[in-house]
Design a protein around this nucleic acid. Sequence first.
DNA 1: GACCAGGACCATT
DNA 2: AATGGTCATGGT
Length: 286
Amino acid sequence: MSCTCETRLPVRDYDLEATLTSGQVFAWERMADGWVGVVRGRWVKLRPAAEAILVQTAQPQSEWSWLKEFLQSELELATVLTTFPREDPHLRAAVAACRGLQLLRQEPWECLASFILSSTKQIAQIRQIVRTLGERYGEQVSVPAGHPPGFAFPTAQTVANLTEGALRECKMGFRAPYLLGTARRIVEGALVPESIRQLPLNEARANLMALPGVGEKIADCVLLFAYGFPTAFPVDVWVARALSRFYFRRNRLSPARLRRFADEHFGPNAGYAQQYLFHYIRTQPG
DNA sequence: GACCAGGACCATT
DNA sequence: AATGGTCATGGT
């Protein structure tokens, strides 16, 4: 078995840039020659190429399933897109605008914590908070020579042992007690992140929503971005805006009604549709 | 300087 | 069930 610091993951229809900048993840940095992040404690640099993603790590790897899983690089996006509604010019326009946008499969705790920090924050600010948390409390990971230091996202155990004040100093404001409370519930074993995966969607959602600072929207983000429930449909202000503009003549509907519409209209991969609409309406001028 | 941001929560109606 | 206020902080 070969063991190297580089590989080439074949992909079809993968827009790395759109995927990493579409508000799913907040800890990836654009470098001159690629995207740098940390996946399951390993520093990674990714570079888009023809029909592939070129990968560099800091330490030799004997296998790459951890990265294929995160990137979902073996998923056939075309198959997902065929499940979208036939007659929907708005969704079709959104897909055309960012074809190759994929859903990642994140580590549950990091995803959950990140989205607890996301409430009424702009993505640029969420990134700042997550970066500060990592630099202060994350485990340092080894990086190739010449690169700035890298940090893993702090574990639930680490966060649980902090004070609310220490978290507030990371500029997360009123979200500090939420993050602390959720970390402590996890450390106590009141919720086992890996156990969520086997549950039916509604049970999984209910379990997440029992955590402090986690409502429907954040629960759906975690269900979609970490656990891979393809019908989870987070409705934030942008998605609400897109749905109301495209499907309801700009009338405002409650998030609950919008989600019900989404279930009926978008089908078995509604979560993907949601991500296309989110990225589309945020990146289209006007 | 006003307005808004990938909301949750609590108290009222 | 639906509305309104509150909670920090910083971008636009």
